[in-house]
Simulated assay, not measured.
Amino acid sequence: MINLDCDDLFDIWRQQARWLLSHEVDPSLVSWASEGVADLFASDDSPPEGQGPFQARIPMALLGILESASRYRGDQRWSLLYEVLWRVSHGDRTAMLAGDKLGSELQRRIKQVQREAHHLHAFVRFVERPPNVEGPQYVAWHEAAHDILHSASEHFIGRMGRHRWLIATPRDGVYYDGEQLIHERQCPIEWQKLAQNVDDPHGDMWLTYYSHIFNPARLNPKVMQGHLPARFWKNLPEGALIPGLITQARTGKQQDGQASSIKGRGGKRIALGDGERGSAVNSE
């Protein structure tokens, strides 16, 4: 068994995979470390030296597919990609398709990565810092399940204009300085502290708004958690309100369909204008 480490970087893995493929090294003979942890059953067999004679023809579309799937964190993260590459390079393109067992897992990982990128766009809450401060003007804390931060955060460049912003995570971080996006694979401690300890000057206003637009009559907790997974609640300002709002809905508020502060108010009578009053009398 050949044990390799690509440092969880697609470009390094691509070079290693191309080199192995040139020697037609079977996927069953190769193992990649993931997040610095090597395969417990891998030996220290020496990889072949130099470039091998086999020249594979790889469709350009496959490289994009493999790069997307490489952002998935999970077992056999890199070995699965090499197995797909091996089969396609030997003429079996079904390995790229969902109808194949291997292709199905490949497509599942790509969907998970895409979904995680959507979660970043939907659930990041930027907090504005005091004016005239150095560094980022807006900061946010996010915990992604897959390595999507660098690619998915480009979405905010167009949304935030020339503002400086920062997104910190337990793993990596990005900082946009108004001109370029800087990605740090190991998020600096000062970035993490800044994103986690900043006070939101508009926090109370947002919580009041969220609690009033919450519609208990339409509550379906299972569907809601499908769109807003519970693992994100702890990092959302409104997350602390959600369990209480669900409880209130289940204990009767769902029947009223209104917040208690609204349902207790009396109705307001609307006075009719002269023309409207005459029409009402004639209609009788």
Rank of each mutant, 00 (worst) to 15 (best):
residue 81 L to E: 11
residue 185 R to H: 12
residue 227 H to I: 07
residue 3 N to K: 10
residue 139 V to H: 04
residue 125 R to S: 14
residue 137 Q to F: 03
residue 91 G to M: 09
residue 137 Q to D: 11
residue 81 L to I: 05
residue 98 A to L: 09
residue 111 K to A: 12
residue 108 R to M: 09
residue 126 F to L: 12
residue 202 H to M: 04
residue 201 P to D: 04
residue 152 A to Q: 08
residue 25 V to I: 15
residue 163 H to N: 15
residue 103 G to K: 08
residue 118 H to D: 15
residue 65 I to F: 01
residue 231 R to T: 09
residue 200 D to W: 04
residue 74 G to Q: 07
residue 186 Q to N: 14
residue 86 W to Y: 15
residue 49 E to K: 08
residue 20 L to M: 13
residue 73 R to F: 10
residue 94 T to R: 14
residue 233 W to T: 02
residue 216 P to E: 06
residue 217 A to T: 06
residue 143 E to G: 01
residue 251 T to W: 00
residue 142 H to T: 02
residue 242 I to V: 14
residue 58 I to F: 11
residue 206 W to E: 09
residue 64 G to K: 12
residue 268 K to D: 00
residue 212 H to T: 02
residue 186 Q to S: 09
residue 37 V to L: 10
residue 110 I to F: 02
residue 110 I to E: 04
residue 179 E to G: 06
residue 229 P to K: 07
residue 252 G to E: 03
residue 71 R to A: 15
residue 212 H to V: 00
residue 42 A to N: 09
residue 215 N to R: 13
residue 271 A to N: 01
residue 93 R to H: 11
residue 14 R to S: 14
residue 133 V to F: 02
residue 272 L to R: 08
residue 234 K to F: 00
residue 175 Y to A: 04
residue 166 L to E: 01
residue 248 Q to F: 05
residue 78 W to M: 06
residue 260 S to C: 07
residue 172 D to M: 01
residue 79 S to A: 11
residue 94 T to K: 10
residue 37 V to M: 07
residue 147 D to W: 05
